[in-house]
């Protein structure tokens, strides 16, 4: 398990992490969300001993990363940003290097290297020097090295960053598979759909402070606004925009094109039915009425907006 207790990191006058407290229970997958510069990577760097905190504690399996990093990281696998690899080594040599540092035997390294390289679909490149690899290939290899020693805890910083859409799906499938194997996973991402799809819970931070930390279901329930795309059979008159904008719980109406508009609506599910009726009452022949965007995305936007 991971325990982040009142963690603080200051860079001069800037507080990158501000009194952050998060507990990641064992065998759970927790997403770590926040806009750029929110402090996600800084927190993960502290957890992985890449930088020192200014205050507070970060513990992995009960061991303080700051005071006993070797012990804390013994059963942790990490991918922080997109790491660079030693270009003169092949994937097999890289995994052997890291495996030896972790005390794995040669036979164990061979077995696990083949497994994890197959898992990230890098087997055919296993004896090619990494200097020639693309960013996506390096990201796959980064995931492979994190899994090599079958760690109890996985810390992933934007694990699908740099991957093409197919690669992203594959990595998500890998993480889902690990989740089923009871790994404790703490992953940052700015892809909300990814977090919603993979994680049990999510913590949202902004400006280094924790805004909310709850299960994905509870976070979805926190969603206050939704966007509804409304399509009409005929052209939507300009006067209809003004009138619809004045309806209860509607905060804005934006034209997508002459036949489609986007309504930002803060009402619950039943109120949405009333909204449909009201729009039809404006004389529009509604052919489409569907919410757009993910609930988590709406929640994220609401909370981040409020925290500013």
């Amino acid at each position: 398990m991971i325990e982040i207790e009142r963690l603080v990191k200051e860079f001069g006058d800037i507080k990158a992490v501000d009194d952050l407290t998060i507990d990641v229970p064992a065998k759970r997958t927790v997403g770590f969300l926040g806009p750029n510069g929110a402090g996600k990577t800084t927190t993960i760097k502290i957890l992985t001993n890449l930088i020192a905190s200014t205050g507070g504690r970060a513990l992995i399996n009960g061991v303080d990363v700051m005071t006993a990093p070797k012990e804390a990281l013994a059963h942790t696998g990490a991918v922080v940003e997109t790491p660079e690899f030693y270009p003169y080594l092949t994937p097999v040599e890289t995994l052997a290097y890291l495996g030896r540092l972790r005390g794995m035997s040669s036979s164990e390294i061979n077995r696990r290297s083949n497994d994890v390289l197959a898992q990230v679909k890098m087997v055919e490149w296993k004896k090619t020097r990494i200097g020639k690899f693309s960013k996506g290939m390096k990201q796959r290899l980064a995931i492979a090295q994190a899994l090599l020693h079958e760690p109890e805890v996985l810390i992933l910083d934007e694990p699908t960053s740099g991957l093409d859409p197919r690669g992203m799906v594959e990595v998500r499938e890998i993480i889902k598979g690990l989740k089923k194997q009871d790994y404790t996973i703490f992953m940052s991402s700015h892809l909300l759909g990814e977090v919603q799809e993979i994680c049990d819970s999510a913590a949202l931070i902004n400006r280094g402070k924790l805004l909310v930390y709850d299960s994905i279901d509870n976070l979805k329930a926190l969603t206050k606004t939704s966007k509804i795309e409304v399509t009409s059979a005929g052209e939507i008159p300009k006067s209809a925009f003004d009138r619809i904008g004045q309806l209860t719980d509607v905060s804005s109406v934006d034209a997508v094109n002459s036949h489609t508009m986007l309504v930002t609506f803060a009402g619950a599910v039943e109120a949405r039915a009333d909204l449909l009726l009201a729009i039809q009452g404006e004389g529009l022949k509604v052919t489409g009425f569907s919410p757009v965007g993910l609930p988590l995305e709406m929640m994220y936007m609401d909370l981040v907006k409020e925290s500013r």
């Binding site: 890449l50 070797k70 690899f85 972790r102």
Partner: peptide, 14 residues
């Protein structure tokens, strides 16, 4: 500078 530290430092080695 080459960011290889992201690979090696998170390992259990001082």
């Amino acid at each position: 500078q080459n960011r290889t530290g992201y690979l090696i430092f998170p390992n259990p080695i001082k």
